[in-house]
Design a protein around this nucleic acid. Sequence first.
DNA 1: ATGGTTTGTATCAGAACAAAACAAATAAAA
DNA 2: TTTTATTTGTTTTGTTCTGATACAAACCAT
Lengths: 398, 398
Amino acid sequence: MGASLEDVRAANLSLVLRHILVQPGTISRAAIATQAGITRATVSRLADELVSAGLVHELAPSSETGRGRPGIPLGPRPGMAIGLGLEINISYISACAIDLTGEVLSLKTIHGDFAGTKPDAVMADVAELGGRVLAAAQAKSPVDNPLFVGSGLALPGLVSSDALMLAPNLGWRDLPMASLLGPLTPLDPVVVANEADLAAFAVANPRPGVPNGPASFIYVSGEVGIGAGIIINHNPLSGAHGWSGEIGHICVDPAGPTCSCGASGCLEAYLGLRALASNAGMPEGSTADEIVEAAHRGSLRAQAAIADGGAALGRALAAVVNTVDIPEIILGGIVASIGDDLLPAVRDELRARVLQSAWSNPEVRIAGNPANLAVIGAAHRTLERLVVDPIIWTARPD
Amino acid sequence: MGASLEDVRAANLSLVLRHILVQPGTISRAAIATQAGITRATVSRLADELVSAGLVHELAPSSETGRGRPGIPLGPRPGMAIGLGLEINISYISACAIDLTGEVLSLKTIHGDFAGTKPDAVMADVAELGGRVLAAAQAKSPVDNPLFVGSGLALPGLVSSDALMLAPNLGWRDLPMASLLGPLTPLDPVVVANEADLAAFAVANPRPGVPNGPASFIYVSGEVGIGAGIIINHNPLSGAHGWSGEIGHICVDPAGPTCSCGASGCLEAYLGLRALASNAGMPEGSTADEIVEAAHRGSLRAQAAIADGGAALGRALAAVVNTVDIPEIILGGIVASIGDDLLPAVRDELRARVLQSAWSNPEVRIAGNPANLAVIGAAHRTLERLVVDPIIWTARPD
DNA sequence: ATGGTTTGTATCAGAACAAAACAAATAAAA
DNA sequence: TTTTATTTGTTTTGTTCTGATACAAACCAT
């Protein structure tokens, strides 16, 4: 479609808001103008618009002394715009509400075993949980009528825009979006995406609208299944249908064990939680921590299982890096808990197999805070919609 | 940077030009207006600008009869804007000149063995060849003073914006762009990219500025080495440094033969031309066609080599598809010549190993016209710069 | 011929940013 | 203490876009 003058204003409004979010409470209109390359006059007009919409407010002048008239620091108004994140995973469902400052206003998790459950019942539970979290957030917010931006739903599976195709470990399949999201209608609009992709989004955007995280990285997430979210130059790589990052079924050894997907030697057949436990000679249902503990206590089988898993992960990641050229890998989920023991094997494989390794060998590190990353990412994603196009929200009826 | 009114005009100018390029010689100002969602008045102004810059011209009214005043068909002016493509490969160097209509005005190739050559000597040869091709194109052009847009250089290796890191089969390494491109200065500005990426670009854009090809696909290219160019939703996936698509070194079997890169079981160790010949029990230097012929004549070793190569390719591509979610694969280069014999094994592996295969099994097909795709893509890429931002070229001194 | 219809252009109004001038608030200097 | 310099935020004016509207041009059908 053709561009119009309104698009210019929308783009600049978003730009101003972004600059405020990046340096909340410390940046003045004039500073935004110089940093963003717009006139002070224009910034002033746009900033006033954000202020009068309530998204941004003026703070008390900082004591920081300087020459000339001191600027008025701008910052996001706490509790004004609320995004809701929802997550369904194998062993829990959870919901969290976050505002534009990035503060988690409310976060609740219900543990349980959701493998093989009925989608509509679980969705109703999630809707109820989300409603409670939203209510708690609104109650906590200092703002009278907070703006509910919408919700994001993280699922462990292949999600396209019109249906959930497959969530193998939940046992869910071929659910049209409309019926799946039915129970969530009070929380509309809902954005649905893969859990690993949203966790990666959270890493890339430590606060809503602030792409301060690493520019390009692979976030590896996993419990029973292994998935990944890929960010390239601050942009999520979602693929043609939104099904990117399914690294759990990369073939690591064609002579390897049969995977639950039917193929042989998938990464998941080495590093998935069930496979890992079985390879370590431990009872089904063992946790990652128990396996690590067994290895540290001297179990040779556990040590071998972890070493094999690390080599498998390294080989799979080498394929990914050769394919999409990414300089950093962040391990999350259960992979993070085993991480320290996996790292040597992973790094060895990467060094040997990545063509670019002599110039830019990918760094591998363990996520600092893997807990709740996916729900948080889901909430950030809904807020991102506001940051990208604040013009919708600034034109409020009054 | 902030958006200004000029950006709106630039965007719309590009949009109008794109619509003209998509339906050359058949589209009128009014049709562009309705299709692009801009006013007739605005389209008229922008189109006139393109006409007065010489990029577009008005054609004779078509005989196609309709109600009301007939529109004036617009089309790109043949021979006006010329982009130059250059390519260095193992067994040839070539250059081609293309105009905005997509017509190849001149194309010359010099065959030879460029493995282990000296970069500066080869670059000088390429510059000379490019100069001759450009001169021939300018002579052939019906326009008095054609616009030279710039050149694009396709290389078989890892190219970043500041250096050619590695071109294994040329034996080139760590060449800073400045010194590499020195001999090409008369052909500035030069865009450098990987050969497979540019071939994929040519497939995605059958004519300059016309993204009419498949929306998302992987183009597999290969001679001695195997590489790929990946397009997602009409956009090239270039990775963090521009080194994406190095699928030749995806591990296909950790117990497999040692590759020239030092690792074991790389795809290239099965499907690279040298590996294929050796596995087929044929003399070094055999061509792909000779190996196929041997297999058809009944050589079991050749048949096995091809089957193994197909399985290896399928396994590697499955990893790629699981990672980046692409619904179509196009085989080019020598892989295209063996293609018919590879397809069954490739498809089997994909069906078994791609998680999404039940919903969207990637189609595999052989490129229709693999010859010269990379040079053509290089030329298209330089012309793309004009199409994306024609404002630079419409503001000519007069 | 005449009317209807579509195209292309000309004119004007509106919207947004840029440039410049100005008022306000502070620190530094006299 | 007063003055000056400096920086901020706002106001005013000018420029440059697109959109809306009106109109002339060119064709078909009656």
